[in-house]
Amino acid sequence: MESKMSKTLADVRNNKWFKLASANSVILVAVLVIIAAWIMEPKTFMTAQNWVNILRSNATVGILAFGMTFVIISGEIDLSVGSALVAIGAITMFVLNVTGSVFVAVLIALVVGALFGTMTGFIVAKGRVPSFIVTLGLMYIYRSVSMYYMKGGGFFGEVEGYKAISNTLVGGFLPLPIIYFAILVAACVYLAKYTKLGRHIYAVGSNKKSARLSGINTDKIKILTFMLMGLAVALASIIETSRMNSINATSSGQGYEMNAIAMAVLGGASMAGGRGTMIGTLFGILIMGIINNILTLIGVDPFLVNAIKGLIVILAVLLQTKEKDR
């Protein structure tokens, strides 16, 4: 009897699905969260409309989470993304209203985003200042200058066409931001797994010395990683400003950096660098989104929502740490 017991246990351990599940604990957590949510709200949760809601309301922060995943894999952190989103948004709205051209506004947003990221990367790589410090400083600077410039208020769009970027429904129900998000996921997976830059980001984040001595220009990789982050912020900023047709100096982008970090970490990105996957982050985004959604659906006090999210992050990462030790 006893030997039979242990044999079945070993069988379970060697089971393909068991291995898959323990190697991708974030997916397991996501599945559990979905099942729990479905049980709690059987009528509304599993509807197409609800999923569209979940995805649309998390597309912006989700895009930041993907940029953040690259930054974390490279062994760095970016605390400035929420404030940078506001600064870029302010510039975008200003350019939009002055030129009246949607195309110019979008182009400027992307260029400024790339410039912001490159600058951050440059200070981190060449100035040898920890990214935590650099981006903490930038976080204050972007927010403060934006508030000053917008006199504590906000800018509103005066060009009708700009709203279409986020508010068009494809086929009558699928908002465009979800499609941007899907394209971005595919692009990030490709970048991480199939390009030299992606491979080099992992190498630099895991062991900068070895990477450098393997002939990799580590400074360049760091700068490029922050540039990617900057582009992600610009994209998120465009979607956000188009959706609201405005930007607000105090409320826009508030806490986005921490949400993005939480999603990436939930997805298995290691703060020590070198580890993390795009698919993991995708599920990290879903988990956070679903929890937000279901807690609202079942009527939990909104003040408590963040506490539960915080708990889930800690639990999920605890689970991942256990695996690594084994």
Binding site: R199, A203, S206, N207, G274
Partner: peptide
């Protein structure tokens, strides 16, 4: 350990790194 290998990469990825 410090200068030669990248511990988070696989054998294959280390071998083709340069």
């Amino acid at each position: 350990k410090e200068n030669g290998i990248v511990a988070d990469l696989t054998t294959k990825e280390n071998l083709t790194l340069v």
